[in-house]
Simulated assay, not measured.
Amino acid sequence: MKIQHNTLNSISITIYGETSEKVYLYLHGQNGNQEEAAFAAKILTTKGWQVVAYDLPEHGTRKNSSEKFVPWEVIPELKNLYQTLKQNWTTIALYANSISAWFSLLAFADIELDHCLLVSPVVDMEKLITKMMSWAQVSEVQLEQEQLIETDFGQTLSWQYLTYTRTHPVTNWQIPTKIMFGENDNLTSLAEIRTFAEKYHCQLTVMPGGEHWFHTEEQLQFLSTWLNKA
């Protein structure tokens, strides 16, 4: 598989595959990096696609970036990146993981993508934040007063983030989409993902016993089989 390293909008990117008019934009999840795209690219490049992957703010090569891993900075960045991709490829599709799926639902709602593949997508960030608040036993009043609260499970609760989700709900998604979801995903419930899939006419595949993070040999094989079919 051909691998190139380049820059787009002054950001380091990795391009997988031979020259093509078709490209997937690969977006990793929290704590991920652009190198993760190699797994999917091994399959997607055999179908005639190239894959462009890059590190989101505060990840990988951008670990110490001035940009932050928050929607009000990531979403404009994704919109700008898409416009740059349009100058180099005629057909653009999306492969997004976890929180990046939610970023994408907001960034690309009114943009023409050929199709989308979403893996363990977060589809309702407000619900996820309030779930984490309950895990940490933090009330809305407390969060509003303190603005930022560190949790013992590694997440920082943010009042600004919560209010952003409430003023920027996902209300439109018309792009043909296929979803891979683990039955035991602890961030999004099965009922929640089914409701989203039905509302926006997405093709949903559920791995029995699967988790949010597909990482075991069995899970990766299931994901590989799905990706080949998708």
Rank of each mutant, 00 (worst) to 15 (best):
A93S: 15
S120M: 07
S104W: 01
L118E: 01
P76W: 02
L118I: 03
V119C: 12
V119M: 12
K63V: 11
M125A: 11
N97S: 13
S120G: 15
N80I: 09
K127C: 13
L117K: 14
L81A: 04
E67Y: 04
V123R: 03
L94H: 01
P71T: 04
I75L: 02
F69Q: 12
L117P: 05
Q83L: 15
A109D: 13
A101E: 01
A107H: 10
H59I: 10
T84S: 14
E126V: 13
R62W: 04
H115I: 07
T61W: 06
Y95T: 03
V123D: 03
E73Q: 15
L94D: 00
L81F: 15
T84E: 15
V70N: 08
A96M: 00
V74R: 08
E126P: 12
E73R: 02
K63W: 09
K86P: 01
E126L: 12
P76G: 02
R62D: 04
K86T: 15
L85G: 03
K79W: 10
H115K: 15
R62P: 01
T61S: 12
L106G: 08
M125K: 09
P71Y: 06
H115R: 14
I99E: 10
D110E: 15
L81S: 06
A101R: 00
L113N: 08
E58V: 09
S120W: 03
F108H: 09
L118S: 05
L94R: 00
E58G: 01
N97I: 14
R62L: 13
S98Y: 05
E73A: 03
S98P: 03
A96V: 00
L81M: 15
S65T: 04
H115Q: 12
S100C: 05
N97T: 12
G60Y: 06
L78I: 04
V123K: 00
H115V: 07
S98L: 08
Y95E: 06
L118H: 02
I75V: 14
A101Q: 01
N88W: 06
V70T: 15
I111P: 03
P76L: 03
I99P: 10
V70K: 14
D124I: 02
S100W: 01
L78K: 04
D114P: 00
L117C: 11
K68M: 07
E58P: 04
E67W: 01
Q83T: 13
H115N: 12
A107T: 10
F108N: 08
A93Y: 00
E77N: 08
E77S: 13
F108K: 09
K79N: 13
A109N: 13
Y95L: 14
W72S: 12
Q87M: 10
T84G: 05
L118A: 07
V122T: 10
Q87R: 13
P121F: 00
H59Y: 11
N88M: 09
